[in-house]
Amino acid sequence: MQMEQLQKDMIAAMKARDKVRKDAISSLVSAAKKAAIDEGCRDNIPEELVNKVILKEMKSVKEQIDTCPATRTDLLDEYNTRYAIFEEYAPAMMSAEEVEKELTEQFSDVIATGNKGQIMKAVMPHFKGKADGKVINQVVAKLCAK
């Protein structure tokens, strides 16, 4: 996701007087700017950094949803709405088939060892932000079982 697109969507939400959407997108913009300052690239924020921030924010909202008491339906609705908005901007994750294809093509030597811990250690940095960890774990377990 491009930073410029996030900012344009935030402005559009302001013009439409959609406070909930504006607040959600605004939190993404500010988190991306903060991360960019921390990494020393404030003027030109790379797309990878914005995607990383979006995934991190989604994870924190998901934790809020999971830990929120069921009696607080107002908060649950707010968190679910925010999560849905974040999902619109989240990068597309790889499917299990895509992960398996890439693993067999690029990491065949490590997979041949059959050591699941060693395989996970080698492949996780490659797939960070591209695929869900649970999907990677399932595919690696399947490949080790062969």
Rank of each mutant, 00 (worst) to 15 (best):
R21V: 12
D23P: 07
I37F: 08
K59G: 11
D18A: 10
I25N: 00
K34C: 09
R17E: 15
E88T: 15
K128L: 11
I25S: 06
Y83V: 03
V29S: 06
I119M: 03
S95A: 00
I136M: 05
A70H: 14
M94V: 13
K121H: 13
A31L: 02
M10G: 02
R17I: 14
A36K: 01
E105N: 13
K52F: 02
A112W: 05
D9R: 07
K33F: 04
A141N: 15
G129N: 04
N51K: 02
T67F: 09
S108L: 05
A12P: 03
A141W: 12
Y89C: 07
D132M: 08
P69I: 04
M58N: 02
N115A: 04
L6V: 00
V61H: 08
N115I: 09
S95K: 04
S26I: 02
A92W: 12
K116H: 00
K146E: 14
M93D: 09
N44D: 14
L28M: 15
E100G: 01
E105I: 13
L76P: 09
D109C: 04
A12C: 01
D43V: 11
P69Y: 04
F107D: 09
V29L: 05
V110C: 05
V61C: 01
K15C: 04
L28R: 00
I37L: 10
E47R: 11
L6G: 01
L103Y: 01
N137C: 07
K146Y: 12
L75E: 14
C41Y: 04
E78L: 11
D9H: 06
R17L: 11
L28Q: 06
E48P: 10
E105W: 09
A31N: 14
L103N: 08
K128F: 09
S95G: 04
T81N: 06
E63A: 13
A90R: 12
K62M: 11
T104V: 14
E105P: 13
A112Q: 05
A32K: 10
A31M: 08
A84W: 12
E48G: 06
A36L: 02
K56G: 13
V139G: 01
L76A: 00
M58K: 08
G117T: 13
L75R: 15
D74I: 03
R17G: 11
Q138S: 13
G133I: 11
E57H: 04
I65N: 01
F127H: 01
F107W: 07
D23Y: 08
